[in-house]
């Protein structure tokens, strides 16, 4: 499966990446090669093999439901670009 320039533009937009006009063709080609590898794997017969979600053969460790964090808002907001009345401020989001 080969990706074209429009596909690359769309993927870049979804990932909020800026890709220059002159880079589109190169990305289309290299990304298509990755898909080629996936296609190769897709062709393998995996009947009876459980899908792997994680390379480690282990389960999630669970923690007790306890509040262990304390308020560090001052420290976090000291490095935020903008904060006011305890809130982080960001450019207006229009819904």
């Amino acid at each position: 499966m080969a990706l074209n320039r429009t596909d690359v533009e769309r993927i870049a937009h979804l990932a909020r990446l800026e890709v220059g006009e002159q880079e589109l063709a190169a990305y289309a080609e290299t990304l298509s090669r990755i898909l080629g590898l996936i296609e190769q794997m897709n062709a393998i017969d995996t009947d009876g093999i459980a899908p792997m979600a994680h390379p480690l053969d282990a389960g999630l460790r669970l923690r007790a439901d306890e509040v262990t964090e304390r308020d560090q808002r001052e420290r976090f907001q000291a490095i935020a670009p903008s904060a006011q009345a305890g809130l982080y401020l960001v450019p207006k989001v229009i819904e």
Partner: peptide, 27 residues
């Protein structure tokens, strides 16, 4: 109705001052 969050030890109590229950994992 847990006391703490799904993946961090921050409190889930309703009505706290903004961002006082948001730890490094949550932000």
């Amino acid at each position: 109705l847990t006391n703490s969050k799904l993946f961090s030890g921050s409190s889930t109590r309703f009505g706290a001052e903004p961002n006082t229950q948001a730890c490094a994992v949550d932000i």
